[in-house]
């Protein structure tokens, strides 16, 4: 059974999505032409946008019956546009954990997550001077450290070079298997789409209903 699945999902009476399901232990890749509603699909999955028809089920239960914050803490949507606060890497971990009312992880955990995302730098490094790609990786590391049941990554490799992108996706695949997580990744990277062809869903262009 899929961890999260959609049934006849329609957004704004304009976009009709094919039924999809994300299984635990797997990474599903989502692609499709620009404007076909990939990011909107993710927002529908974690309840930050509302469907005009259809439903989303998490472990068989409609998300309309799950408290919004509880849903978002189970199904984490990682924005394409990362956001970091002014301060060091460690301070950013602490700020995000404080917002989510959770205890900040130990330094070893932070460091391990950073390394998983291809960054090896001291936690005392200020984030503002980092490049866009490095900031994205710090943000991805913070999200990864949260240990959610399901991750929806919106173009997490957009600001990364090909090699780093492939390494990061390999980490996601490994994490999903090891920790039995359901993951979905929006990507336009042809190389990744070819490599993970079996696990790819291509959304069709918008058809006005």
């Amino acid at each position: 059974m899929a961890y999260i699945e959609t049934k006849g999902l329609v957004f704004d009476n304009k976009i009709r999505y094919p039924d999809i399901g994300l299984k635990r232990g797997e990474v599903t890749f989502i692609s499709g032409p620009s404007g076909c509603g990939k990011t909107t699909l993710f927002r529908l999955l974690n309840g930050t946008a509302n469907a005009s028809a259809g439903d989303v089920l998490v472990e068989g239960r409609s998300i309309s019956r799950i408290e919004p914050l509880a849903l978002r803490r189970r199904v984490l949507l990682v924005n394409q546009q990362s956001y970091l606060f002014i301060g060091t890497i460690a301070e950013n971990f602490a700020i995000y954990y404080r917002y989510l009312e959770e205890n900040s992880p130990k330094e070893e955990v932070m460091q391990a997550c950073l390394q998983s995302c291809g960054l090896s730098m001291p936690l005392t490094t200020p984030v503002q001077p980092l490049s866009g790609g490095e900031q994205q990786r710090v943000f991805n590391a913070i999200c990864l450290s949260l240990k959610r049941e399901c991750y929806l990554w919106d173009e997490p490799t957009a600001a990364l070079d090909e090699e780093t992108a492939q390494a990061f996706v390999a980490v996601l695949v490994e994490q999903a298997k090891k920790n039995y997580l359901a993951m979905a990744v929006i990507t336009h990277d042809d190389h990744l789409l070819k490599e993970y062809k079996e696990q790819t869903i291509i959304l069709p262009a918008i058809k006005i209903l």
Binding site: N46, T48, L69, A70, V78, N79, Q81, Y99, E101, L146
Partner: peptide, 16 residues
């Protein structure tokens, strides 16, 4: 961007 990222992560509106 800060508001949307925190909303997507499940932070409480009051905290955000």
């Amino acid at each position: 961007a800060q508001i949307l990222v925190l909303m997507n992560m499940g932070a409480r509106p009051r905290k955000i």
